[in-house]
Amino acid sequence: MFAAAAIAVLLALALAVIRAIKGPTVFDRALAGNSIGSLAIILLAVVGFLTGRPEFLDIGLTYGLLNLIGTLAVLKFFRHGDLAHDPDTERQS
């Protein structure tokens, strides 16, 4: 049962990677990257159950937080070209 879930998640991961490679704009790639992150968390949880080691869930939680921060950082970088962006100076630039 968990093996079936793991195979399904791996299949979905492969499809997301196809989108990340094909994606015409950088935002398509960022979206695919975020989906890959979500699927990786689920894969971690499923593999944890598959091998009977639920400690994998802690890694999944950490990975989820990193996934959020990573995607937001990439988006902010592509929108402003700068990670330490000050909204007050946006109008002048």
Binding site: A4, A5, A8, V9, L11, A12, L13, L15, A16, I18, R19, K22, T25, F27, D28, L31, A32, N34, S35, S38, L39, I42
Partner: peptide, 29 residues
């Protein structure tokens, strides 16, 4: 859950533009 995950991923590949792809990704999420 496996079915909906795969369906969302198929949508991610099939949809024609960025905004419609987001809807597919939110099915997975």
């Amino acid at each position: 859950g496996s079915f909906f995950t795969i369906a969302g991923a198929i949508g991610l590949v099939r949809m024609p533009d960025l905004f419609t792809r987001m809807h597919a990704a939110s099915v997975i999420d």
